[in-house]
Amino acid sequence: MNIHSRLEQANDNAAAFWLAQARAHGWQQLAHPGFTAVRCARTPDDAHRIVVTRPYGEPAPLEEELAALLREWSTTQLTLEDPYGRLDMARFGCSHGPAMPVMAREPGPLDVSPRGGRTATGGGTDESLTVDEVQDGDGFAEVERSVVDGFPIPARQPWTRGGMLPERLLAEPGCRAWLGRRDGVTAGACLTYDDGRATGVYWVATLPDHRSRGVARAILETALAAAHPDRPATLVATPLGAPLYRKLGFIEQSRTLWWTRSPSAGGQGRGGQER
C-alpha cells in the first residue's frame, strides 16, 4: 500500500489535529509510527483518542499494544479510529457502529462568489447567509457552541465556553475556524486543519433552526476555497454529510471503524465521536 496515499494523508491530518488539541489542552500524547494517541483529560472519565495512521499486518500484535496503552493510561472512555477496519477491539470491552467513509478531494478551485462576508453560492444558499473566518475568542466560542449544539455532542452539553475547544486552539498553526450566520445570527460552523500536506475538515455543524438552508454547503465552500485550495482536502463523513461532500468533489478512500468503550461495558467508557 502507498503510505503517501490520500488515505494516509487523511489519517496523518486527523492525528495532527488531535495533537494540536492536546497541546491546547495540555494533555498527554503519544505519536507512534503506526498510531497517535491523546489522553484527553477534561474530566476523569473523558474519552481518550487513538487514530491508527498506517497499515498493519496481523492485527493481534497491534491490538495487544493498544490494550497495553489503555491499561497504562487507565482509560475509562475511548474512541479509536481504525481506517483499515481489521482490528477487533471487542475483547477489550469496545464496540463499533457502522463504518464511515474517509473521503478526499483533489486540489482545485470551487465555484464561489462572496455575498456579505465570505459567502459561497450554490445549493440553495439564501441571501441572508454569510460565512467568515473567525479571528477572535468570542467568534471561536460561537464556533464551539455551534459544534456542541449542532452536531450535537451530548457529552459537552450544556455548552460551556472553552470546555471542548479552548481559545488556545485557534493559535495552533494550521487551525482555522469558520462561522456561518443568517441575518447576523449564528447558524453553523466548521474547523479546518492544515498540516502542510492536506487540509482536514472537522465538525461541520448546522444549528437546528437553520437546517435545509444551504448553511453547511456555504461554510464548506468558503473554507475549501480559502484554506489552501492547492492541497487535497480530507474528512470523515457521517451518513447525513456524505451526499453533500460527494457533490463538492470528495471521493471515498476507505471506510473507518470507530471503536468506543463505555462504563456500561465492564467499566470501560464510551467516547463521543468528536471529529
Rank of each mutant, 00 (worst) to 15 (best):
L170H: 07
L129G: 06
P166S: 03
H4M: 13
C94T: 06
F92L: 04
T160Y: 04
G241C: 06
R246N: 12
A41R: 13
G174E: 00
R168T: 15
H4K: 14
T53I: 00
R71M: 12
Q135K: 15
E142Y: 02
P33K: 02
A99C: 13
T130M: 12
S146P: 02
A67P: 05
A227I: 01
V201S: 07
A218G: 05
D111Q: 12
A104I: 07
S113F: 01
C94N: 10
R217Y: 02
G241E: 00
A225C: 05
P239W: 03
T125M: 04
P152G: 12
W18Y: 10
E63D: 06
L248V: 10
R115P: 07
Q135E: 15
G271R: 04
P263A: 11
A47G: 13
E144Q: 06
S146A: 15
H4A: 14
P98A: 10
R176C: 02
L191N: 09
H210D: 14
E144D: 12
Y84T: 03
Y56I: 13
G180W: 00
T119K: 11
V185P: 03
D111Y: 01
A99E: 15
T119M: 11
L87W: 07
M164D: 08
E65L: 09
L30K: 03
Q28D: 12
G116F: 02
W203A: 15
P55S: 14
Q268H: 14
E221P: 02
T130P: 10
G184F: 01
W259K: 01
T260N: 11
